[in-house]
Structure formats: C-alpha cells, structure tokens
Lab assay of single mutants.
Amino acid sequence: MKVIFLKDVKGKGKKGEIKNVADGYARNFLFKQGLAIEATPANLKALE
C-alpha cells in the first residue's frame, strides 16, 4: 500500500515521502499512530 508519511518513522521513511509499505503495517500502526495517510489521488493533490 502506498502511504504518505506525516512524520519521520525510523527505518521506514521521512515526513513528506511516499512509499510502499505492507498493508497491515499501514493500517495497524502508521494510520492509528497518525504517522501516515493513504496515498490516494486526493491526498497526493493536497500534499502539493
């Protein structure tokens, strides 16, 4: 799953980066902790 990092995550990505991560890791950790959001077209446009 492609995500946009909202904060730096050690070993995974830095704020503003778009990367592929495992679906479960994204849903169960990154999204719940507020560290990333899904890289949807609307979210990508908002990032610009």
Rank of each mutant, 00 (worst) to 15 (best):
V21I: 09
F5T: 01
K12P: 01
L30P: 02
I4D: 00
D23P: 14
T40K: 04
G16I: 01
G24Q: 13
V3R: 00
A46W: 15
L47M: 13
D8E: 08
L47E: 06
K10D: 14
K14H: 11
E38T: 05
A26T: 09
A36P: 01
T40Q: 03
F29P: 04
K10Y: 13
D23E: 15
K32P: 15
G16P: 01
A36E: 01
L35S: 04
L6D: 00
K14N: 10
K45F: 08
A39T: 02
K12T: 14
L35W: 11
A42H: 10
N43P: 02
F5Q: 00
D23M: 13
M1F: 08
D8G: 05
E17P: 00
A26M: 08
G11H: 07
K15G: 04
R27P: 04
T40S: 10
E38D: 04
F31I: 14
I18W: 02
Y25Q: 06
V21N: 00
A36I: 07
G34R: 07
P41E: 15
V21R: 00
F29Y: 15
F31R: 02
V3L: 04
K15H: 07
E38V: 06
A22R: 12
I37M: 11
L35F: 12
K2T: 12
K19D: 03
L6V: 10
K45H: 13
I37D: 02
I18Q: 04
K10T: 11
P41K: 10
G11V: 01
A46L: 15
G13L: 02
L47R: 07
N20F: 15
F29W: 13
F29L: 10
E17H: 04
N28T: 08
N28H: 12
A42R: 09
K14F: 12
L44K: 06
A36F: 01
N20M: 15
A36S: 01
Q33H: 15
N20S: 14
N20I: 15
G16W: 11
G13P: 00
E48A: 11
F29D: 10
K19G: 07
F31S: 03
E17L: 02
F31T: 06
K10M: 14
A46K: 14
K45E: 14
V3G: 00
I37Q: 06
F31Q: 04
D23L: 14
L47P: 05
A36W: 01
G11F: 07
K45A: 15
M1V: 13
E38H: 06
L44P: 03
M1T: 14
F31H: 02
E48T: 11
Q33M: 15
K7S: 11
L35T: 03
E38Y: 05
R27F: 09
G13F: 12
G24P: 12
K45N: 10
K7I: 12
M1P: 05
V3F: 00
K45Q: 13
G34F: 08
K45P: 05
N20R: 14
E38R: 08
G11K: 05
K12S: 14
L35N: 02
G24K: 12
K10R: 13
I37W: 05
A46G: 10
K7Q: 14
L35E: 03
A39E: 02
N28V: 06
K32V: 14
Q33K: 13
A39V: 05
A26Y: 13
P41Y: 09
A22I: 08
T40I: 05
A22Y: 09
K32G: 09
V9K: 01
G13A: 12
L47G: 05
N28S: 08
V3Y: 00
V9N: 01
L44G: 04
G24L: 11
Y25F: 11
I4K: 03
V9M: 03
D23V: 14
G16R: 03
G34A: 08
K19M: 12
A46R: 11
E17W: 04
N28Y: 11
A42I: 09
K10P: 15
N43D: 06
Q33G: 08
A22V: 09
G16V: 01
A39M: 05
I4L: 09
A22T: 13
E48K: 10
K14L: 13
I18F: 03
N28A: 10
A42Q: 12
K45Y: 08
G11E: 05
Y25D: 08
A42V: 09
K14D: 06
I18T: 05
L44D: 04
K14T: 09
V21S: 02
A42Y: 06
G13I: 05
D8N: 10
F5Y: 08
E48P: 07
A26G: 05
G34M: 08
G24E: 15
I4Q: 02
P41V: 11
E38P: 12
M1H: 06
V9R: 01
K15I: 10
K32N: 12
R27Y: 12
F5D: 00
F29M: 09
A26V: 11
N28E: 14
G24M: 13
A22H: 13
K32A: 14
F29G: 05
F5P: 00
M1A: 05
P41W: 08
N20Q: 14
K19Y: 07
K32L: 14
N43M: 08
A26P: 01
G34S: 07
I18M: 06
L35R: 03
A42T: 10
Q33P: 01
M1L: 15
K10Q: 14
A22L: 11
F5H: 00
F5A: 00
M1I: 15
L44H: 05
K10E: 14
N43A: 11
R27H: 11
K2D: 10
A46D: 10
E38K: 08
L6R: 02
L35I: 07
N43R: 07
I4E: 02
K15R: 13
L47Y: 14
A26R: 02
P41D: 13
P41T: 09
K12A: 15
A26I: 09
V21L: 05
G24A: 14
A26F: 14
Q33D: 07
T40A: 04
A36Q: 00
N28W: 10
A42K: 09
Y25N: 07
N28F: 09
A22W: 10
R27S: 07
G13H: 11
L47K: 05
I4Y: 08
L6N: 01
M1E: 04
L6Q: 03
L30H: 01
A46S: 12
E38F: 04
I37R: 05
A39P: 02
Y25I: 08
T40P: 04
V9Q: 01
G34P: 00
G34T: 03
K32M: 13
K15Q: 10
A42M: 08
L6I: 11
G13V: 06
D23A: 14
F31A: 02
K12Q: 15
V9F: 04
K12F: 15
T40W: 04
K32Q: 11
K14E: 08
N28P: 00
N20W: 15
L30D: 01
G11T: 06
L47I: 11
G24T: 12
N43S: 07
K12R: 14
K7Y: 12
V9P: 00
I4G: 01
Y25M: 07
A22N: 14
A42F: 06
I18V: 14
G24Y: 14
N20K: 14
G34Q: 09
K19A: 10
G13N: 03
K7G: 06
K15D: 03
L35V: 05
I4P: 00
E48W: 07
A42W: 03
G16D: 05
A39R: 01
E48L: 14
L35Q: 03
K19V: 12
K12Y: 15
A39I: 03
I37T: 06
P41G: 08
G34W: 06
A46F: 13
I18Y: 03
P41H: 10
F29K: 09
V3A: 01
A42E: 15
L30I: 02
K15A: 13
K14M: 12
P41M: 11
D23Y: 13
K15E: 08
A26H: 06
N28L: 10
N28K: 12
F5K: 00
I18S: 03
Y25S: 05
N20D: 14
R27A: 08
K7E: 11
L30N: 00
D23N: 13
N43W: 05
K15W: 04
A22F: 09
L44S: 04
F31M: 08
I37L: 10
L47S: 07
F5W: 02
M1G: 04
F31P: 02
G34N: 11
V21G: 00
G24F: 14
K12L: 15
L47V: 10
L6H: 01
K19F: 06
N43G: 06
K45T: 10
T40N: 08
K12G: 13
E48S: 13
K32E: 14
L30M: 04
D8W: 07
V21F: 07
A42G: 12
A36K: 00
K2R: 14
G24V: 12
I37N: 02
D23H: 13
G13T: 03
G13W: 12
K14I: 12
K45S: 12
L30V: 00
I37E: 05
K19Q: 09
R27V: 12
M1K: 07
K12M: 15
I37A: 07
K12H: 15
K7H: 13
K2S: 09
L30E: 01
A36M: 01
N43F: 06
V9H: 03
L35G: 02
G16F: 08
L6W: 01
R27M: 11
A26S: 06
G16Y: 08
M1D: 03
Q33E: 14
E38S: 07
N20G: 07
R27Q: 11
G16E: 02
E17I: 03
G16S: 04
F5M: 04
K7A: 12
F31K: 03
A26Q: 12
F29T: 11
D8R: 04
L30F: 03
D8F: 06
R27E: 11
M1Y: 07
Y25A: 06
L30S: 00
K14R: 13
